[in-house]
Amino acid sequence: MKSAVIVFPGSNCDRDLAVALREITGVTPLMVWHRDTHLPEGLDLIALPGGFSYGDYLRSGAMSARSPVMAAVVAAANDGRAVLGVCNGFQVLTEAGLLPGALMRNAGLDFVCRDVLLRVENSRTAFSARYDTGGTIRIPVAHHDGNFTADDATLDRLEGEGRVVFRYAEPVNGSARDIAGIVNAGGNVLGLMPHPERLIDDDLGGSDGRRMFEGLVAALS
């Protein structure tokens, strides 16, 4: 499985994501700088990492979503290529219009940095295929702007189409309907606030995140 990690100025989880992809896919991902206008050929997965790209200026993810490489990412996503956005990557995907809604300041105003329990709502996506629908997993979050917001019609549509993939199983940030991760209508773009790349090895505290990447390998290789 050939993957790329997009690196924005201010990304800080790009190397964690690269390590997870390397360890689980067996292939070192390509690191693509945000000013590049083309993506490498033959990618199976494009990953947008966590961090504070552009210092969260204007709105989290707003500047990155307009950076040169994103035109190529949007084109690839619309072409059906798998795209994973973690944390700041999720914010970038909403700002780029690949996912609906917006991620606002946490309702409690605090930066939340801890492991949280998630309920897997839909295991029929490439990203969640190694989880069980209805199962609970533990994944860390680390964000200030994770409060998912959309109008009721959008939320109803996401729920009705099975596009809410992960939901917080405990209060975290005030997200509408406790949404932690959603997919696009095609099911090939996932954005989530929790960081699966941080829990891929029991020696590092857990491996619930590992199964996301294992599912992707199975689906995309």
């Binding site: 707003a62 609906p100 917001t149």
Partner: peptide, 9 residues
């Protein structure tokens, strides 16, 4: 529309 405001919110 292109950048300064996010029409979603």
């Amino acid at each position: 529309g292109a950048l300064l405001a996010n029409p979603v919110i």
